[in-house]
Design a protein around this nucleic acid. Structure first.
Length: 305
DNA sequence: ACCGGTCCCTGTTAGC
DNA sequence: TGCTAACAGGGACCGG
């Protein structure tokens, strides 16, 4: 599934391939894929047609394309890829060849004859148009952090771990102020964004912390290790997968082979921990999974109250 | 205000 | 072989 590194790869690909292009047509094949655009598919089409794509931005797993001739404060096409979403630029013969793709949800025609296709098998992803709002980023950025203009639905999303403006000290404090387990805190988008199940588990393994350790009882150093671990794994994945947009066009979905080789615990139930050889364990967690090394990441003695 | 549980959706795989 | 259930999971939403 697209995690933050894949979303950043897509953003980078959009920046290099569709900026400056004008929107000539929008074909919404499945209304569910634009469900977050409250005024409906026809309104979405009207707000995009004739506009020019002027910038590609991202926060966490949300990405957006800024639109020209802004209204007061500007507006943008907001995209979330969900579990299986892809944004694909198609040229020439590929435009027609892909027109019948079974999972093509929205097709955006561009003024050079190419199209930007939103393909999404499991339909958790969505597109919508929103005006930009200013956010003080109090959740993670703290006082003195730069203001940011983001689409309305992103206003409550904290800065992500790859954001240069992230205030690490304030984030550590915010995590320790929570009354929950460390993995829940890492996955809470209002505290820090962009950390999904994979990077939470890998970051906690690097930090040698069990996912259910209470945040309030962790030291600043321990929280810092968990955040740094997640950030480092994401940065490494980004470095490995950064060319997939150019190379494939058909697949910006993270299937570069990186995960097969590099994941220490995620999806590795029953296989040896790369650090100590103890077999990796899977636990049910938040309607999904949590993977740990039982030796490196011992379970807290007392469960959280 | 904060926290935890539930649900949305579809295709693949495991199990009986 | 054919069916059902489990699973993948970010984020909106809701009740306590």
């Amino acid at each position: 599934m697209p995690e933050l590194p894949e979303v950043e790869t897509v953003r980078d690909g959009l920046e290099r391939h569709v900026l400056g292009r004008g929107v000539t047509a929008v074909d919404v094949r499945r209304a569910y894929s634009v469900r977050r655009h409250e005024a409906g598919p026809l309104d979405l089409v009207g707000r995009l047609r004739g506009r020019t794509l002027t910038a590609a931005a991202r926060r966490g797993k949300f990405l957006w394309l800024l639109l020209d001739e802004p209204e007061e404060g500007g507006d943008a096409l907001l995209v979330h890829l969900g579990m299986s979403g892809q944004l694909l630029v198609r040229h020439e013969a590929a435009v027609e060849q892909a027109a019948g793709h079974p999972h093509l949800r929205v097709r955006i025609g561009l003024d050079d004859g190419s199209v930007l296709d939103f393909v999404d098998q499991r339909t958790f992803g969505h597109l919508s148009v929103h005006e930009l709002v200013a956010t003080p980023d109090g959740a993670a950025g703290g006082a003195g952090s730069p203001l940011a203009a983001v689409p309305g639905p992103v206003a409550h999303i904290a800065r992500d771990l790859l954001d240069p403006a992230l205030d690490r000290g304030a984030l550590v404090a915010a995590v320790r102020a929570r009354r929950t387990g460390i993995k829940r805190a890492l996955l809470d988008q209002t505290t820090v964004s962009g950390v999904g199940n994979i990077y939470a588990d890998e970051g906690l393994w690097r930090a040698r912390l069990h996912f259910d350790r209470p945040t309030a009882a962790l030291t600043r150093a321990e929280v810092g290790r968990a955040l740094d671990g997640a950030r480092e794994v994401m940065a490494e994945a980004l470095a490995q997968g950064g060319t997939s947009f150019d190379a494939l066009y058909v697949n910006v979905n993270g299937q570069s082979g990186y995960f097969d080789r590099s994941l220490a615990v995620y999806g590795q139930e029953g296989r040896p921990c790369p650090r100590c050889g103890t077999l990796v364990r899977r636990d049910a967690f938040m309607n999904r999974s949590a993977y740990t090394c039982p030796s490196c990441q011992p379970r807290p003695r007392r469960p959280r109250p």
